[in-house]
Amino acid sequence: MRFRRNETTLNNRSWLGILMLLACAPLLQGCSEKEEMTIDRVRLGLALQPSSTLALIASEKGYFRQNGLDVVLTDFPSGKRALVEGLLPGNVDIAVASDVPIAAAALRGEKFKLVASTFTASNVNRVIARRDAGIEKPADIAGKRVATQKHSAVHYFLHLFLMENRVSESDIKLSFTRAEELPPALEWGTIDAFSMREPYISQAAELLPNNHVIFAAPGVYKQYDVVVASPEIQKQSPVVIEKFLRALLMAGRFVEEHEHEAQIIVAYKLGTSVEMIASGWGEYSFQLGMGQPLLLLLEDISRWMKAEGQITPNFLEMMAFDGLEKVKPQAITVFR
């Protein structure tokens, strides 16, 4: 009887061991897959502005790392600078830029790929002016010294803003400078007004607390921010693009489910107040996409900018759909 009791105990232990192994198999498999995940290093050029929310959230919440990316982030004062100073010279592999500098670069014959739009809004940009320059309403800008950043979203907005208020570009003294130089230029009085977006509008307002007026033009320009990749990384490492977009998709879900926390993160990253970020939040759409309106807008912008004899670029050929097709195929509405 003793022999049989030991044998029974042995059999029970054997079955128990087998059951434990079966129960742990999924966990062990998950650990194995985690260990085997390839971590790809990618250099990202990003503007510190609200339109960069998805990438800022993905970085802060660790979504890039969760999707197998080691992202080395370089920040720029604007999306144009991220494209022109980061991506095009080869200093970064991926950048996020708005539609206008993308169209301008395409007109110059630069080579890059459009991966997905990450942001749309139609009331982002503003014109801020000095009251002591005699500016109280938009029409008062005629004859004044107005500055902006050349071939950027705020430049195109200024063009449309003037048209909306029946002021000709030839009626203003237009100059171009870097985004970060505009608030002090307005404070010092070397310019009378400038066209820009946050955080530079708020910075200028703080420098001239009782001597400024801010103009908006909702709906005149629906702008897009777009993920732009070097042709090399898009061709040689398409999985990197897919991982990048999956991280942004996770960030998008976080923004939808934790709006206030997302605003806190963005405010911290931008070095500004949560109130300032929240004030414009309702105007923004943080969604991955590749739509026909973006394609048409790029063509419109290039026609506005191009010199005589220049040909409108084929933006459809510049669009790379592979990554978005794997991550969010329903977001592609471009006619192909």
Rank of each mutant, 00 (worst) to 15 (best):
L69I: 06
K111F: 05
F315P: 10
C24W: 10
A267W: 07
I241K: 03
F3T: 11
S152A: 13
F254R: 03
R166H: 14
F76V: 08
N314W: 00
A82D: 02
S14G: 02
G45M: 08
L160V: 02
K269Q: 14
A55P: 07
V92W: 05
A179S: 07
R126I: 01
L295M: 15
D99A: 11
A204Q: 11
V71Q: 06
G189R: 06
Q287L: 13
S98L: 12
E257A: 12
M196L: 06
D300N: 08
L160G: 03
V71H: 01
V124N: 15
E308C: 02
A278R: 09
Q29P: 05
E33P: 01
K137H: 10
K222F: 00
E7Q: 12
M1I: 14
R5D: 12
I264P: 04
Y63Q: 06
Q49I: 07
L248Q: 15
D132H: 06
A247E: 05
A251P: 00
I18M: 13
Q49V: 11
G323E: 01
F76M: 06
V266E: 07
F335S: 14
D192W: 09
P313R: 04
R131C: 01
V228G: 11
M163Q: 12
E164Y: 00
C31Y: 13
S98A: 15
R336N: 10
P184S: 12
E261Q: 13
D322Q: 13
M20N: 08
T120N: 05
D300G: 01
F76D: 00
I265F: 04
